[in-house]
Design a protein around this nucleic acid. Structure first.
Lengths: 178, 178
DNA sequence: TAATAATATGCAATAAATTGCATATAGTGT
DNA sequence: ACACTATATGCAATTTATTGCATATTATTA
C-alpha cells in the first residue's frame, strides 16, 4: 500500500490533481515510484473515502475540471505514523536480467540488441534526472535546505542509473562480436 | 508474467522442485527476481496445465515427496520466443526513498535509523553475492564459459548493491548529527 | 480535413501478488 | 516436553496492478 504513502508525501508537499500526480510519477519522481493513472485515481478515491485527503474542484476553460487534492490533518497523522514505521526492502523483479541469464538459448546478438535498447532508455532517464539536479543546483541558497531530503533521493536515482549504464556498457562490450 | 519466464529459465538450467526454486529466489538469483512460495507453486501448476513444464514425483524418506519439474519442448519454444521479444523496463517502487522524500515531517533521527537498518540488509546481500562470485572465480576454466551470461547478471547484482551502499553512506553522513 | 497528442477523469474485467492458514515429518535447541 | 527451524506442498481470501475501454475538449501536425 505504499502507493498511498507516495501520494500522501507528494500531496503534503504540493496539493495536486490526479493528472498532475500522474505526470510526477512519469518524470519527476519516477526514479522511486511508478504508477498508472488508473491506479492513482483509484487510490485517490480510497484515500478520500478514508478521510486522509480531500479535494476542491477547480473549473478550467477548455479543459475538463480538475480535482485538487490536499492532505487532511488525519492524513498527515497517518503519514507521520508510516514515516516512523519499519518498511520492507523493495523487491527487485528485473526481466532484462532474466533474459540475459537465459541468453544461452538464443544468440548473443538477440540479447545484445535488447540490452542496447534498454541502455538508450536508461541514458535518457539519467539525462532527465541530471536536468532536475541542475535545477536544484541553481536554486537560491535559502531554498536549498527545503529540498535537502528530496535531493538525497534524487542522488539515488542518478547514481543508480550511472551504475546501471556502466554495467550495461560492460555487457555490451562482452556480447559484441570481436 | 515474467515470473513464469524466470521459472522456465531456472528449470531449463536445472530441473528442480518448487521448494528448490523458492530457495534460489531467496538467495541465488534473488538479486534479479523475488517471489513467494505461494506464487511459485501457483505458477508451476499453471505452467504444467499449459504444457510448458512437467514433473516427476520423487519419493523421499523422512521428508515429503518432491515434484521435480522440467521444461518440455513446448516450454523451450515458448521460452525462446520470449527471449527474442521486447520487454518493458522494470518499474521501481522504492518505499525507503518515499520515506526519505517525506522525511521533513519526522525527525532526521527517525529516517537515519531506517536507512541504517536497510544498509545492514544490503550489506549482507552484497556479501552473499560476493560469495557466489568467488564460487565462479574458483570454477574450472573449462566450466566458466557456461556461466558467462549468468555471471554478467551477478555483476549487476554486485554493482547495484555497491552503488546502493555508497549512496546510503552519504545519506547516513548527511543525516548524522554534526 | 482528419488524425493525433495533450489535458483530465473514471469504470470494469482480469491477472498477479500478498496474507493467512493448513498439513506432515524430522531434527535441534531450551 | 515444547518450541522452533527446515523440508515440502498447497488452498482461499483479499488486495494491488494491469489491460482495455470510455468520455470530453483544445491544440497541433500531417
Amino acid at each position: 500500500m505504499s502507493l498511498q504513502h507516495s501520494l500522501l508525501v507528494l500531496l503534503a508537499e504540493q496539493p495536486s490533481s490526479g493528472y498532475e500526480l500522474s505526470q510526477k510519477f512519469k518524470s519527476g519522481v519516477g526514479y522511486f515510484w511508478k504508477a498508472s493513472h488508473q491506479q492513482i485515481y483509484t487510490q485517490l478515491k480510497k484515500l478520500t473515502e478514508d478521510g486522509l485527503i480531500d479535494f476542491e474542484e477547480e473549473q478550467q476553460e477548455g479543459k475538463p475540471d480538475k480535482k485538487i487534492y490536499k492532505v487532511t490533518a488525519q492524513g498527515m497523522a497517518g503519514l507521520k505514523t508510516w514515516l516512523s514505521s519499519e518498511i520492507k526492502p523493495s523487491k527487485t523483479n528485473d526481466a532484462l536480467l532474466v533474459m540475459i541469464y537465459g541468453g544461452r538459448y538464443v544468440g548473443d546478438d538477440v540479447i545484445l540488441k535488447e540490452v542496447r535498447r534498454h541502455r538508450d532508455i536508461h541514458q535518457k532517464g539519467l539525462e532527465k534526472l541530471l536536468a532536475i539536479e541542475s535545477l536544484y543546483f541553481n536554486l537560491d541558497d535559502e531554498l536549498k535546505p527545503q529540498y535537502r531530503l528530496p535531493y538525497l533521493t534524487l542522488k539515488r536515482g542518478i547514481r543508480g542509473e550511472q551504475s546501471w549504464l556502466e554495467w550495461a556498457d560492460e555487457v555490451i562490450a562482452e556480447l559484441s562480436p570481436q
